[in-house]
Amino acid sequence: MEPLHLNWSEMARSLSSPILDVLDSFERSRHDLRESTMRGYLAGIWRFAVFTGSQNGLEVPRSRKDARPILMTITPAALTLENANRYIDSLVRRKRKTTAHHDGRALAIFSEWCVEARIFPADPLAGFKVPKQPNNRRRPFQDEDVPLIRKAARDSDMGERDETIVVVAIACGLRKDELRNLQYPEDVDLPGRVLYVRDRAAKTDASIRRVVMDDEIVAMLDEYIDEWRPSRQPGALFLNNHGDGLTYGGFASIFRRLKRKLPREMDFKLHRARNTAITNWLRNGNDLHTTMKLAGHKSPKVTERYAGEFTDDELRKLVRPSFTAIYGKRSA
């Protein structure tokens, strides 16, 4: 028998459909979103569904793998203003304000989509206020942390590859998905010392940003390519031990392994590598606008949030007195 092919609006069905099926329709229909963005939305809606189920006496699953029964029980009818506010309030009380912001946004986007899919006749979250993003300054790694991170990365069966990935992240400020999606040779210009970082969901050249590499990064990538990609065939830059491109889970396992090896007080998170790159670009004398472009930010305010604090010596290098240069010295 031929399989039945349904479009996403047919798959979404109704208020009585399990939310797991509705989320599948949501994911299929919103192919305009970045993979990482969609993954964040799905995780936020999953957490909301689990919370709502637990409020109604359902057993809280220990992991996402165990969540299928609860996601087959909860339906879109649970998406009410009361439930959404109760869930967000619970996050705020536990001081998880960043999660409250991201999950609140995910619920708002999902609610609007449910109206488009004719699951709801009107937005069930009309009037819902997404909490503001906490204005916390992100912390880069300390200078003395970086050698420890590199050593921990080298201390594995795939040490050369893992160290290269970590150093590229710290030096070039790439996000996890940007690292994973780097293609060879399309995105790697070793003679020109440039990495091309592409938004794979976009279709214009404006979605490509260029990051300049220093000599050590070029040398590390050259050695990695010689060892791991001797055929130099086009494809994913970073490979697993079977010669296939690393999956999202493969990348995540590398960083989990690193975190276990490093001191707990270091609080190793890959995204702090991005903070470190942005801070170092500024420390090295790049202006805020240039750093914003290198980081792929749309606003300098975001870039400022990522940057760490500077010492007095670093500030003296960064802030170049301009009054005399523009107006000249005082006449005698």
Rank of each mutant, 00 (worst) to 15 (best):
L107V: 09
K95W: 11
I225F: 03
R229N: 11
Q133H: 11
A201W: 00
I119Y: 04
K95M: 13
I149L: 14
A152Q: 00
E216R: 13
S231E: 13
V130W: 00
R161K: 03
R200C: 02
P131Y: 04
D222C: 05
V188R: 00
P230N: 06
A100N: 07
A108Q: 15
K203M: 09
H101Y: 13
T99E: 15
D143A: 14
N135C: 14
D143K: 13
T204W: 00
D226Q: 12
P131C: 10
D199R: 12
T98W: 08
L195E: 05
A126R: 12
R118S: 15
E216N: 13
L107N: 10
K95E: 15
A100D: 03
D123F: 00
A100I: 08
I208D: 05
I208Y: 01
P185V: 10
D177I: 09
V115G: 11
E160S: 09
V167C: 09
A117T: 07
D205R: 11
I225W: 02
D214S: 08
P185I: 07
D123R: 05
L148P: 01
D157V: 11
V218E: 00
R175S: 12
K151R: 14
M213Q: 09
R96T: 09
R175T: 10
D155V: 02
P140S: 10
P191T: 05
R210G: 06
L179Y: 05
V115R: 04
F120P: 03
P147H: 02
D155M: 06
R94V: 09
V218P: 00
K176T: 14
K176F: 01
R209F: 01
K95Y: 06
V115E: 05
A202M: 08
V167E: 06
F141E: 03
A122Q: 13
A171Y: 07
I149N: 10
R105K: 15
R139S: 13
E163Y: 07
P140Y: 04
P230F: 00
L125Y: 05
D199M: 10
R209T: 02
T99G: 12
V197Y: 03
L125G: 06
M213W: 02
A169H: 06
P121N: 15
T99Y: 11
I119K: 02
Y224I: 01
Y196M: 12
F128R: 05
R154C: 07
R150E: 13
N136R: 15
